[in-house]
């Protein structure tokens, strides 16, 4: 499922226009990104929680050349799946995983 498929599903199930559904879905994720930018965690009961983990600067390596590369301090989001969703996902083991490859990002 992509973001636009999620929007379509919300429009159909919530009986609202696609334009309104898009506003709702975008507003939810924008709100969550802003909270994380403030360093705030997010807890959605039954779904999971997002926390922000700080990483210290370290010296990495270019895997191709072996050259040391300084890696700056950074913050990364970390998701912990909630109990209900974890059980739901595990319960889908009898079906093949669908929804395309994992590497497509953006």
């Amino acid at each position: 499922m992509t973001k636009s498929e999620l929007i379509e599903a919300i429009a159909a199930r919530g009986e609202l226009t696609k334009a309104r559904a898009e506003l709702v879905v975008s507003c939810i994720f924008d709100t969550m990104v802003e909270a994380m930018q403030r360093g705030e965690g997010i807890e959605i009961r039954g779904f999971g929680s997002f926390s922000i983990r700080p990483y210290k600067p370290y010296s990495g390596r270019n895997p191709r050349t072996g050259q040391p590369v300084p890696v700056a301090a950074k913050r990364l989001p970390f998701f912990k799946v909630g109990k209900e969703l974890r059980e739901l996902v595990d319960g889908s083991r009898d079906r093949a995983i669908s929804g395309g490859d994992d590497e497509d990002d953006g």
């Binding site: 992509t2 973001k3 999620l6 969703l85 079906r95 093949a96 929804g99 953006g106």
Partner: peptide, 13 residues
């Protein structure tokens, strides 16, 4: 969606 074994991709997120 996840409970029926389908991944979700939210672009920008």
């Amino acid at each position: 969606t996840l409970g029926r074994g389908e991944k979700i991709k939210i672009s920008g997120f």
